[in-house]
């Protein structure tokens, strides 16, 4: 009986917290349908007949930021960077673990080291080098993400590969597989859970990243975070209505992605933390 009451109280408390967690997003949604002058001062008031403007804010916002193209570039950069990261860092990690030599363990430590270096340390020099090498476009950005994301990804893949038994790979070699076939036909399928974790952690990072793409590309090709920040004019003036609409449009794809692969995301985050 006592425990039943306790459970009920805990449920109420959790319910209260859940409301607190959801309300900010709800308020933004609400305000995205209000006229821009009735947002800053009364954000907690429901739209009335006077303040309701329908989808006007969405139209202004989309026109001012070029949201459809920002969505496209965000998706393009995220999907291809994550694919490239998973493909190349898994191969590199396997090589580093299987080839026991001084240079491979040196490379391993370099990759691990890169994980603790804050972005500010390399942001200036890296964006200049990207400029010089003509990588300052969405395609070059993929190479930059491969380089910058390789630390964590190589580290996580190597941790798992160490527990993969050598016997299977040796059998494949005897059957005539070359290393590339051995890796993709035998090893990679075993690595799948880690590959999903690596993909999810990198997706969360790259999709939301603001400073790196902003410094490398500038505003020629905006991603979603750059488009949102771009709304804020040079002197701090901002169309609140358009901003609210853009916030909703920026959150929407994330929520859809989250709700459709929730199970993998939560598992991946838990697994990633245990290793990281």
């Amino acid at each position: 009986m006592k425990s039943k009451l306790g459970h009920f109280l805990a449920f109420l408390l959790l319910f209260f917290f859940a409301i607190v967690f959801l309300i900010p997003i709800f308020i933004v949604l609400l305000n995205s349908f209000k006229s821009k002058f009735s947002i800053s001062q009364t954000p907690f008031v429901l739209p009335t007949e006077d303040t309701f403007v329908g989808i006007e804010n969405y139209i202004t916002g989309i026109n001012n930021t070029g949201f459809p193209s920002a969505f496209f570039w965000s998706l393009f950069v995220t999907v291809f960077s994550v694919a490239v990261i998973v493909i190349f860092t898994s191969m590199t990690a396997w090589y580093i673990v299987r080839v026991k030599a001084k240079f491979t363990s040196f490379m391993y430590y370099l990759f691990v080291f890169s994980m603790i270096v804050p972005f500010q340390m390399v942001m200036f020099t890296m964006s200049k080098i990207a400029n010089i090498l003509a990588l300052d476009n969405p395609y070059g950005l993929i190479i930059i993400y491969l380089g910058f994301g390789s630390g964590l990804s190589v580290f996580m893949f190597s941790g798992f590969i160490k527990s993969v038994p050598l016997g299977i790979e040796e059998a494949a070699t005897i059957d005539g597989c070359n290393p590339l076939q051995t890796f993709w036909l035998i090893v990679f399928p075993i690595l799948k859970p880690t590959a999903i974790t690596v993909a999810i952690l990198n997706t969360m990072w790259i999709w939301n990243d603001y400073l790196l793409p902003y410094l490398v590309i500038g505003s020629d090709y905006k991603t979603i975070p750059i488009a949102v920040q771009y709304l804020k004019g040079g002197y701090g003036s901002i169309d609140m209505g358009a901003l609210m609409a853009m916030l909703v449009l920026a959150i929407l794809p994330v929520v859809i992605f989250y709700l459709s692969c929730q199970k993998y995301i939560i598992k991946g985050v838990a697994a990633g933390a245990v290793k990281g």
Partner: peptide, 30 residues
Amino acid sequence: MNKTIKRWFPIFVLPTLIAFLIAFLIPFIM
């Protein structure tokens, strides 16, 4: 086994390593 894999360095390691040099190691040292 070890030696056969070793020769595959250009395919397994080089792409990641080049990107790592451009995006991290060279900017860090500079």
